[in-house]
Computed example of a mutant assay.
Amino acid sequence: MPDSVCHTPGPDTVRIAVITVSDTRTPETDRSGARIRELAAARGFPVVSYAIVPDEPDRIDAALTAALDHPDVEAVVLSGGTGISARDTTVEVVSRRLEKELDGFGELFRMLSYHDIGSAAMLSRAIGGIAAGKPVFALPGSTKAVALGMEKLILPELPHLIGELRKHRQKTP
């Protein structure tokens, strides 16, 4: 991080909900969800909620609502359903819920992906923002994509995001 960047102090740990969106994955075959949980745990961020839901908007929305309403969840990471097929509806569900979109997340994710997969990176609709006062990120379903998003973007910034959200919440009467 450049020396000129000043971060609002944030917590040492962030409690995360993980939602895998897939018609075919089970807890035994969900490698991307497992990778998110492993990376979060390695950073000291406990995963307090985990779900697998089919690529159905109502089911995705219900899982997202449950995660956002969970009193111990401070951030939500979704995996899957961010592509361009007719069944890929995660982005539509998440974007309806966002109070503020973090445009830079998707832009940076695609830029970093381009270095790995070339022009196919433009097919990713990864999105991030704030919903119900909590950071929410939707990543593609591949293990390589979730590792990239978690290691390079989400995990390094989550404490800062939480710190910013708490700072402004405390100032609101």
Rank of each mutant, 00 (worst) to 15 (best):
P2T: 01
V5F: 15
C6F: 14
R15H: 13
A17S: 11
T24K: 09
R25S: 01
P27G: 12
T29I: 08
D30S: 10
I36Y: 03
I36N: 07
E38S: 13
L39P: 02
A41I: 00
A41Q: 13
R43Q: 11
V47L: 05
Y50D: 12
Y50T: 13
Y50W: 10
E56N: 11
E56R: 15
I60E: 04
A63Y: 02
A63C: 08
T65S: 14
A67C: 03
A67Y: 05
A67S: 12
P71A: 12
P71V: 09
P71S: 13
V73G: 09
A75Q: 02
L78Q: 03
G81M: 04
T82E: 05
G83H: 08
S85D: 06
T89A: 14
V94L: 03
R96K: 13
R96Y: 02
K100G: 00
E101Y: 05
D103M: 06
G104N: 04
F109S: 09
S119D: 05
L123M: 13
A132H: 08
F137V: 05
F137I: 06
L139Y: 10
P140K: 11
G141T: 08
G149R: 06
H160F: 13
K167M: 13
K167L: 14
R169T: 12
R169S: 14
T172K: 14
T172N: 12
P173V: 06
